[in-house]
């Protein structure tokens, strides 16, 4: 027999755990901070959000105010982005349009998030014929050219939504339902949500399918959790990571799509503000006043790029890594 006895040693003696618990979200935040593009993107996103909220107040001129003494001015100190054919300050118009872009981006993303998760999770958990049908629907949506589909849906959706706003006006009497801008928004939300939910649905379905096989879900069954509990407490939270990444990169796509629709005349129309229709108006005189196209275009590009940077950095940060000892 060896001489040694087994002395109990408490972990305090060689404690190499960090000072505070490191949750996966905390770890992710730390990783995110390391990414320079991510932080830059985040900075711009926060700036953009700030503008979206305060546009009305910080814009130097009114969105529709026409200054006949300053027609078609190139960028200057008084008009940082110049003016258009009827003397409206482009900078102010861009600021207000950002509001639209963000509003559409966020609301559509929320709708897509909810719908995509519900449908995707249902497909994965119920399985069988339900799953087959849902995949079929998602594939159908994904196979159509996006813009074509969006145009089609917007044309098709306009009458019923118009009907809806009319009846809402009749029942509540609020002036707001009469505003064409509200109608435009309604159509745009519907169209974009319809076109964008399928990729997220696919993602959620895939994630749930793979998570379902993991032992910690089996363990949940063993301890007596109901399917609802497992789904809401364990499956969905673990799907959040990839979902957030998809949504943040997707926001850029949504904003671009909204601009495209507005540019084509089937999205937000004047007097509504949108970078898309600013570009459309600017196109009429792009040779003589290129700033009218370039400015809104560049702003749009920057905003989308920032969201993409953020989404990319989130992607790198959110993969749970096991630190083995």
């Amino acid at each position: 027999m060896t001489q040694q006895t087994i002395t109990p040693i408490t972990t305090e003696e060689f404690d190499f755990m960090s000072e505070t618990p490191r949750s996966l979200w905390g770890d992710a935040a730390r990783e995110f901070r390391r990414s320079r593009t991510g932080m830059l993107g985040l900075f711009i996103v926060i700036l953009v959000l700030f503008i979206a909220i305060t546009a009305q107040w910080i814009a130097p001129y009114d969105y529709a105010a026409q200054d006949w003494l300053a027609l078609r001015q190139p960028p200057s100190v008084e008009h940082p982005m110049g003016t258009d054919a009827v003397g409206r300050d482009l900078f102010s118009r861009v600021l207000v349009s950002i509001q639209t872009a963000i509003l559409v981006g966020i609301i559509v993303s929320v709708i897509v998030g909810i719908v995509g998760t519900l449908v995707g999770a249902t497909a994965a958990l119920v399985g069988g014929i339900v799953d087959t049908v849902i995949i079929w629907v998602m594939d159908a949506i994904l196979n159509f050219p996006t813009l074509w589909l969006a145009a089609f849906v917007s044309v098709v959706a306009r009458p019923p939504i118009s009907q809806l706003t009319r009846s809402l006006y009749e029942s509540t009497g609020w002036e707001i339902w009469q505003n064409t801008i509200v109608l435009d928004y309604g159509v745009v939300f519907t169209v974009l949500a319809f076109v964008s939910w399928a990729p997220l649905g696919r993602l959620v379905r895939g994630q749930v399918l793979s998570l379902r096989e993991k032992e910690f879900i089996e363990a949940q069954m063993a301890i007596g959790a109901s399917r609802w509990w497992i789904t809401t407490r364990h499956l969905i939270p673990n799907v959040m990571g990839p979902m957030i990444v998809q949504l943040s990169i997707g926001i850029g796509g949504v904003m671009l799509a909204e601009s495209a629709l507005s540019f084509l005349g089937i999205g937000i129309q004047p007097p509504g503000a949108s970078l898309g229709n600013l570009i459309a108006i600017g196109m009429e005189s792009w040779r003589s006043d290129p700033h009218l196209v370039a400015m809104p275009g560049m702003v749009l590009a920057f905003i989308i790029l920032s969201f993409v940077f953020v989404g990319d950095a989130l992607n790198d940060a959110l993969n749970p890594r096991i630190r083995e000892r």
Binding site: I6, P8, E13, F14, F16, R325
Partner: peptide
């Protein structure tokens, strides 16, 4: 053997 192997960082 009580305890754990050390982390190479510590």
């Amino acid at each position: 053997i009580p305890g754990l192997p050390p982390s190479l960082n510590h």
